[in-house]
């Protein structure tokens, strides 16, 4: 099982993501710098959290246009599973791999803390490890996590079962309490909460370990 984490300038959850992937696969992922032209041939790619390019212009805007993204987009379109967490979700919307946009939190505050999420759809490539769990606890830490899209898009996402996670207590004003969505083919998941931060009891939770284990098992 080969995996990769894309590292942008000012990514700051790349090593957490790498630890979570190594725990789930037994093998360290490729760490791929944003200036590279190609991602190695892997089974799963993660866009990590952080503040790529200092959130200049719009969160995720510059990272979505960095050199590596042409190949990330190509691989995602060819069906390679791709997970974007937090800043990674912002990059996915900016790259138009997912619809909508992540706007400034409605309360204007940076929000940081554990969130209980409803697992809305446990029948995706990404949620096999959460089967039977109606709720999981993943932490959030973001300033621009307010998911917005037009009503038609929101209706479509809900109608097609593409809302994967919802906040139980909405921390950022996201439309319809959306915390995570998948693309129409089901191989690209974007989510604001951080599963890679809860992969061991010492970190305050293990729901993230089950999440990553499930993704890897589904790929095997």
């Amino acid at each position: 099982m080969k995996t990769a984490v894309i590292v942008f300038p000012a990514s700051n959850c790349d090593r957490d993501a790498a630890t979570a992937l190594e725990q789930a696969t037994g093998t360290a992922p490729h760490m791929v710098w944003h200036g590279e032209a190609e991602v190695p041939d892997v089974d799963f790619i993660v866009l990590p959290g952080g503040f790529s390019y200092g959130d200049y212009l719009r969160s995720g805007a510059m990272a979505a246009r960095s050199p590596i993204m042409a190949d990330v987009i190509r691989k995602a379109e060819a069906g390679v599973p791709l997970l974007g967490v937090c800043n990674g979700f912002q990059v996915l919307t900016e790259a138009q791999l997912l619809p909508g946009a992540l706007m400034r939190n409605a309360g204007l505050d940076f929000v940081c803390g554990m969130q209980t999420l409803q697992v809305v759809n446990d029948d995706t490539k990404f949620t096999g490890g959460l089967k039977g769990k109606s709720y999981v606890d993943f932490p959030v830490a973001h300033h621009d996590g307010n998911y917005e899209a037009d009503e038609e898009t929101l209706d479509r996402l809900e109608g097609e079962g593409r809302v994967v996670f919802r906040y139980v207590a909405n921390p950022n004003g996201s439309a319809r309490n959306i915390a995570g969505i998948v693309n129409d083919k089901g191989n690209v998941l974007g989510m604001m909460p951080h599963p890679e931060r809860v992969i061991s009891p010492v970190l305050g939770g293990t729901d993230g370990a089950a999440f990553f284990k499930g993704i890897i098992e589904a790929l095997n």
Partner: peptide, 9 residues
């Protein structure tokens, strides 16, 4: 179109 504005919003 390519970078400066996000047509979604």
């Amino acid at each position: 179109k390519k970078l400066l504005a996000n047509p979604v919003m």
